[in-house]
Design a protein around this nucleic acid. Structure first.
Length: 494
RNA sequence: GGCGCUAUCGUCUAACGGUUAGGACAGAGCCCUCUCAAGGCUUAAAUACGGGUUCGAUUCCCGUUAGCGCUACCA
């Protein structure tokens, strides 16, 4: 295989969609598997749908999730933000610019060439005319689409117009798709599609074919929904005398109802997953497994990006669409959280604890990290588990404490004894704390379970916490004893 | 409507004509256990339907059904 070059060409119409992440991931996995390059191109040909700052947002999202392209928009191409600041996230490369709105002259040149060849023509039909045409077709129950009214009218270049591609009659086409296999259209049914819009911008079809050719793209990996327009693209390559790249149409990522994943299924923007506390590594690993699998009877499914790159082939890409399972992503996120080093987890947790308004004490946090680690599915799950460490006043669920045969007198005695024991411990560590509390249980004559439950609520305020002894150790002797005594007072009043 | 794509447990998928149809998530049960997790073990659960081809079809072919996509001066 010659040099492999793939491209990911999102439209800057908003945040990066999770489905886009899967496409971008496959572009990179495939290119890098073959030692080639993955190119990031900005498809901003629809001026009406542009969203300010979307380009830098897209690049930032891609970078956060760990998808790094080899070529892409340079710093100069990326618009300044609202404050006039540069994003500094440019990539650059030998085929600059990588932003389609900056390549308009090229598309116009090709459109002119096509007109000269007699393969395209100017059309000045108004939207109203087109609308009427469609209404008539609908009334007659004919197939909808442009009639070709302007095909031979030789519309002047001086009037507002679009440029349409002249679809040859009675042509058939076969696409040797790298994942779908041979797909044939016989005959091709296309209605003279617009190549150049009246605002001078190209449509997707022209722009993508021109750029893929100019940028030496060898493999076009793209979503399934493009399959029906593939014959048009093939035709364009053919009439322009260019070699077409290899196409690979990727199966769609679906919502639980089997329709394309969209907002009503839940989060769809990568940004949202980031804010919800998902790890980039987990997201990539999970997305790789929708529409691709290692096969060969491999039963492992936790793969690093490097491992995915090593294993990825188009042959193993699935044909059928796959439902995006939030449940499984969550599970996998937990797997990745558990695999983090303690300092790494602590660092990743920090922003979430801060946004929950917890005044973090790094030492205390460090002590509890290993014990909350297996209890997290999402990063913010840590908040309720560690909050007791960072506040002076805790709310205690007293009704939970005095449940199941536990009366105030007994509870009070337990807290008193526990406070005494903890205060007099020669060494204040988890093992010693455990020994002390077991002694308290023994002396009180109650079972250790209920005793620990009382202490747990007394010290943390909650019924669900990290392991008790480690929690007390993390909190520190002084505060723990204080909270125990506080509880005795509360029980007295109550 | 037309054209195209797709079809294995609820979900993601494995099985490149011969398997007791395997794994993972979710579910159930048990073990471990100071709560909650994590972990270990066990369990239930699928080849859409109908025809072919073949000694033999999840696998190849055809049809049916269902779902999805496209049918724009959106991508």
């Amino acid at each position: 295989m010659n040099e492999v070059r793939t491209r990911f060409a999102p439209s800057p119409t908003g945040w990066l969609h999770i489905g886009g992440v899967r496409t971008a991931l496959f572009e990179i996995l495939f290119a890098h598997h073959h030692g080639g390059e993955a190119i990031l191109r900005i498809d901003d040909t629809d001026q009406d749908r542009l969203v300010p700052d979307a380009i830098s947002g897209l690049i930032e999202d891609l970078s956060w999730v760990g998808l790094h392209f080899d070529e892409g928009p340079s710093n100069e191409e990326i618009p300044l933000d609202a404050n006039g600041r540069a994003s500094g996230m440019g990539i650059g490369g030998p085929f600059q610019p990588y932003t389609q709105s900056l390549r308009l002259h090229r598309y116009r040149e090709i459109a002119e060439q096509l007109i000269g060849l007699g393969c395209a023509y100017r059309c000045d039909c108004t939207p109203e005319r087109l609308q009427e045409e469609r209404a008539e077709q609908a009334a007659r129950k004919d197939p909808l689409g442009y009639s070709g009214f302007c095909r031979d009218r030789h519309v002047s270049s001086q009037v507002p117009h679009v440029v349409r591609f002249k679809i040859p009659q009675d042509r058939s086409m076969v696409l040797a798709d790298a994942v779908k296999g041979d797909v044939r259209w016989d005959p091709i049914i296309l209605r003279d599609p617009v190549l150049l819009k009246s605002d001078g911008f190209p449509t997707y079809h022209l722009a993508t074919v021109a750029d893929d050719h100019d940028m030496r793209i060898s493999h076009v990996l793209r979503a399934d929904e493009w399959l029906s327009t593939a014959p048009l693209h093939l035709l364009l390559y053919e009439t322009l005398g260019w070699d077409a790249p290899v196409f690979a149409h990727l199966p769609p990522v679906l919502g639980t109802d089997g329709k394309k994943l969209s907002k009503r299924h839940g989060a769809t923007f990568l940004r949202t997953f980031r804010e919800a506390g998902y790890l980039p590594e987990a997201i990539l690993n999970f997305m790789a497994l929708i529409g691709w699998s290692p096969g060969d009877g491999e039963e492992e499914e936790i793969f690093s990006l490097a491992e995915l790159t090593r294993r990825f082939t188009l042959e193993r890409v699935n044909n059928a669409g796959g439902v995006f399972s939030y449940e499984k992503l969550k599970w996998m996120n937990g797997v990745y959280i558990r695999s983090l080093s303690a300092p790494d987890l602590q660092a990743r947790l920090r922003p979430f604890l801060i946004s929950a308004n917890l005044p973090i004490d790094e030492d205390k946090l460090g002590r509890i990290i290993p014990h909350i680690q297996p209890r997290l599915e999402l990063l913010p799950d840590a908040v309720p588990l560690v909050a007791f460490l960072f506040t002076d006043r805790i709310e205690r669920d007293m009704s939970a404490m005095l449940k199941k045969g536990m009366d105030a007198g007994t509870a009070s005695a337990i807290c008193t004894k526990a406070a005494e024991q903890l205060a007099s411990l020669p060494a204040f560590d988890a093992a010693s704390i455990e020994a002390a509390l077991r002694r308290v249980a023994e002396e009180s004559g109650a079972k250790s379970g209920p005793v620990f439950a009382v202490v747990r609520i007394a010290v943390t305020g909650k019924t669900v916490t990290p392991p008790l002894f480690e929690s007390i150790f993390a909190l520190g002797r002084q505060q723990s004893v204080h909270r125990l005594n506080e509880t005795v007072d509360i029980l007295k009043i109550g």
